[in-house]
């Protein structure tokens, strides 16, 4: 039971702490990074750089492990096709990200920082996800 609940809780906790520490729960900092042609704030690049560096090491370790420490098997995406859906979806996501300076992780983390604002964003985000599921089911 602990083995089942603790790793994802700890991972989420570390993730949220990292976002908060790195200033990523502040929409002004995120929009500052996207304001490349204006008053650019490079902080997000340091956050992403640190995260990618650590994760690159994890990807070197992973193939040497027969199975995850607290799980039965690895479930890692193996697609490599570049589709219009991937690019169009990512483009839409980027627009939303730029409009309010929030992406999913910081928005959920910010539920304890600015509860009403974060909840509005998260609710709309989940509605968008539901919309995609309903449309794709009918397609």
């Amino acid at each position: 039971m602990m083995k089942q609940y603790l790793p994802p809780l700890l991972s989420g906790g570390l993730f949220g702490a990292g976002l908060a520490l790195g200033g990523m729960t502040d929409p002004a900092r995120v929009r500052g990074f996207l304001d490349l042609f204006g008053n650019w704030d490079p902080t997000l690049a340091f956050v992403m750089g640190g995260a990618v560096l650590v994760m690159a090491i994890a990807w070197r370790i992973q193939p040497r492990m027969a199975q995850p420490l607290f799980g039965l098997k690895f479930a890692i995406p193996d697609r490599s096709d570049l589709t219009p859906k991937l690019i169009g979806g990512s483009a839409l996501f980027g627009i939303g990200w730029g409009v309010a300076g929030l992406c999913p992780g910081p928005a959920i983390t910010a539920l304890v920082i600015e509860p009403v604002s974060a909840a509005i964003f998260v609710a709309a985000m989940l509605a968008g996800m539901l919309l995609v599921r309903l449309v794709e089911k009918d397609a």
Partner: peptide
């Protein structure tokens, strides 16, 4: 602070990958 936050985020993602396989 950004780099430190990033290292924590990377650690979180590493824990999810190496701990839970996801």
């Amino acid at each position: 602070a950004g780099l430190a936050g990033g290292v924590l985020i990377g650690g979180a993602a590493a824990l999810m990958l190496l701990g839970a396989g996801r």
